[in-house]
Write a protein that binds this DNA or RNA. Structure first.
Lengths: 228, 228
DNA sequence: GCATATTTGTCCGTATGTATA
DNA sequence: CTATACATACGGACAAATATG
């Protein structure tokens, strides 16, 4: 609906800021984060302050704050006096990310206190991945697979562990974009996720941790080979 | 040495920016981070944009970028339309931090490949803590104790693990400030650090991990009790 | 509860320096 | 080497929210 009074448009924008209780910079970073994650802004893309600022209707100062946020999440890289770019991960980054995942995910599993309620929640995520596979939505399968690992980290009962994992997984999506054929990459892991969950429920954390470590080693192999 | 020509002072500042290759906002955040960590700006302190900006000779926009950086490191909290404050950690934060430490540090130890060279590096940190204790510099003892744990994380061989640990330890210093009597708090851990290191060298990672987990549980207890 | 002063949120214009064709 | 395009940083402006009396 247009504004028939030609009234205070800035006022409306200001109101929305107050309604969401988040700053403009955060909303801008949300928009950019989504576009990066879905692959709309592929790795290596330079983000011009002028172009994006005018496209989203925010000032350069505000935009720079949004860039700062995303740079800290490692989705953007900032080169002094050159600007910001969508991050391009190297083979070393993939290796590092999987070392970190092994430490954090396996550590979370090791020191978790797992309730039946927790197990049900993780099972729900696996089920959703299977449902997505049934309708051949391989992008959704990838998303649910990542959520499975996030759910594992939630078992540690630490908000900071979950928060960190969110960042790791966002970075990983940058890697996934270099993989063609999402079905071939994501489908096999649905079954392995289920196996890990079953082992956790029936054989205990120790065995589940072993399987998870193996899972991560395999995934790392597959990704680093794709980098050749 | 004064500048007898009354020449371009701004130019000098600009040159320094290029020499260290970091932005003004980063240098400002470094200054503030140090002052927070050493306890010069205790938890709860409000950081006025006007006061600090003029004190450090930077514009509000630049200062706000520095605030963003430190907020993301969880050293500051940002309240909309109220400003930024030095973070005050709650008992829950302490619990969470120690859960995270257990996951990361024990995980790092578990999946590390430890060389003799690594062991010597960690031993050097323990030695420095003992040297600091010998001259009754308990603040330095605290610093070295934290560096010991950072050194343990370096065994994982992952830059991201080390990076994350740096952030955790900076947060922890906010907690340490609520503890009186730094000697009583820090001194006992020198011996335990040495014991963990010895166990790692002689009995393997498994035993060292157990001792580290116990160490972290004890430290958490001691801190949360201080929060009464 | 109200009016005022202070502070933050946002944006703009500009001067300066840097990277790249 | 020059020219162009861009990032960096500053200062100022005004609206909106908060704090103060």
């Amino acid at each position: 609906m247009a504004d028939p009074t030609g009234g205070p448009v800035e006022k409306l924008a200001a109101d929305r800021i107050q309604l969401d209780r988040v700053s403009t910079a955060e909303r801008v970073s949300d928009v950019l984060r989504t576009r990066i994650i879905v692959g709309d802004l592929p790795p290596g893309t330079r983000l011009s302050e002028e172009a994006i600022g005018s496209a989203l209707g925010v000032s350069r100062n505000t935009l720079r704050e949004a860039f700062r946020l995303l740079t800290h999440e490692r989705l953007l890289v900032h080169e002094l006096n050159r600007g910001v770019f969508v991050r391009t991960l190297t083979k070393d980054d993939v290796t590092d990310l999987y070392r970190l995942r092994k430490v954090v995910e396996c550590g979370a599993l090791r020191y978790a206190e797992v309730t039946d309620e927790d197990l049900r929640r993780v099972q729900a995520v696996v089920d959703e991945a299977e449902a997505a596979a049934a309708r051949s939505d391989w992008v959704a399968v990838g998303t649910q697979n990542l959520r499975f690992h996030q759910a594992l980290c939630e078992l540690a009962g630490s908000p900071r562990v979950v928060d960190m994992m969110r960042g790791i997984l966002a970075e990983l999506r940058l890697v996934f974009h270099v993989m063609g054929d999402p079905r071939r990459f994501h489908e096999p892991y649905i079954k392995r996720n289920q196996e890990i969950l079953t082992a956790l429920a029936e054989q205990g954390r120790e065995r589940a941790e072993q399987m998870l470590a193996q899972y991560l080693d395999d995934a790392e192999q597959q990704l680093t080979q794709a980098y050749l």
